[in-house]
Simulated scan of single mutants.
Amino acid sequence: MSSTRAAPDPDDPIGYFLEDLTYHGKTDRTRQAYERVLRRFEEFLDDTDPESASHRDCMSFVHSLRGDVADSTVATYAAYLHRFYGYMTEVGAFDGNPMTLVMEEMDETVDKDPARRDVSIPAMRSFVAGIRHPLHRALVVTLLKTGMRVGELCNLDLRDLSVTDPDLEAAYSLGGRPALSERPDSIFVTAEATVGEELNGEVRTAANKRKRGTVIPVDDELRRTLKAWLAVRPDSPSPAEPLFVGTAEGWGERIRPEAVRHVVERYAREEGWYRTGGGADENVTPHYFRHFFTTHLRDRTGDRGVVKYLRGDVADDVIDTYTHNWGDQVREVYETNVYRLLV
């Protein structure tokens, strides 16, 4: 005896798709990006339901974007729509994917390596000097000094930070990670954080994309910045003891990626480095700081291996080599070459 599962027939296909993205472990940022595009498409259709849209409706929507956003953004929006229809067709909610033909005929492509704003080290130093809020400065300096992703920043716990400072060592339980036992003044970025999974007693809302844990040196500037933050850090109800917690909304709760992006956007706008509708080539975001770190440290060291290790790029030979020779090949190279940010 066999049974078949009935195909879904949601009243709100877009909502159904977005909910499934959550179940598949996609980040809030990814889900929000899809929602913006798909709701814009739904509004464009007016009285036509997405399920009933033809390839000409889709083609007309894509054409309406031209001249309003960059070519690579047109391609990205089309790709989101294509995936939506492909998924809904796959689960049996829709009969077909009207975006298939549109994608085949489009000239626009996603720019996977956009040219980015060229910010000099003196200009970035001036930018950091304008950030007085202890939390905001700590977030920005940590991103700039480590090159970690915003989700990785948010997932840091006190146990992931080891610093040689009697005041901090007396006040906090720092550096509990075994990986930090022989590596003072460093941060451990785990590969184990997954959305919806418990880590160190707390269910995480952001994921780390590293395949292997990484130990990143903490230089004197980052140590001073983090000490200033910890001096005013609110107590947290989380048993994980997050390193970065909210000081306004969500007082004492682990800070989320969207809050970090909002902080960076605020200061970047004030500097003239962010414009609504601007692309990766124009806007300074947390991900831009990762690009800044990679570019300047690679240029200064000439050692791509160390930079790959610090970024957490997957290559077992690179990870193993620098893990076993961390003090000589990572800390020494890093501290000799990392740029200065504090005036």
Rank of each mutant, 00 (worst) to 15 (best):
111 D>W: 07
30 T>M: 06
73 T>Y: 03
70 A>L: 04
252 G>M: 03
226 L>R: 01
83 R>S: 12
312 G>S: 06
313 D>H: 15
263 V>N: 11
286 P>D: 05
158 L>Q: 14
343 V>T: 15
232 V>C: 08
46 D>R: 13
302 G>I: 08
307 V>I: 01
141 V>T: 11
103 M>D: 08
343 V>K: 14
264 V>C: 12
317 D>A: 09
2 S>H: 07
153 L>T: 00
195 V>H: 12
302 G>Y: 08
30 T>G: 04
203 V>F: 05
61 F>G: 04
277 G>L: 14
290 R>M: 07
305 G>K: 10
202 E>C: 01
278 G>Q: 15
204 R>N: 06
330 V>N: 06
301 T>P: 09
276 T>V: 09
270 E>G: 15
308 K>N: 15
214 T>Y: 10
2 S>Y: 05
252 G>I: 03
319 I>E: 13
269 R>D: 00
137 R>H: 01
27 T>V: 00
309 Y>R: 13
340 R>Q: 13
294 T>Y: 02
255 I>F: 00
298 R>W: 08
48 T>L: 06
59 M>H: 06
119 V>K: 00
122 P>Y: 08
167 D>W: 00
93 A>W: 07
313 D>Y: 13
155 N>D: 11
97 N>V: 05
154 C>Q: 09
161 L>R: 11
297 L>G: 07
60 S>M: 04
322 Y>R: 02
1 M>H: 10
91 V>Q: 06
286 P>Y: 01
212 R>E: 15
20 D>K: 06
302 G>Q: 03
260 V>G: 09
207 A>I: 09
134 P>N: 10
244 F>A: 03
241 E>M: 04
304 R>V: 12
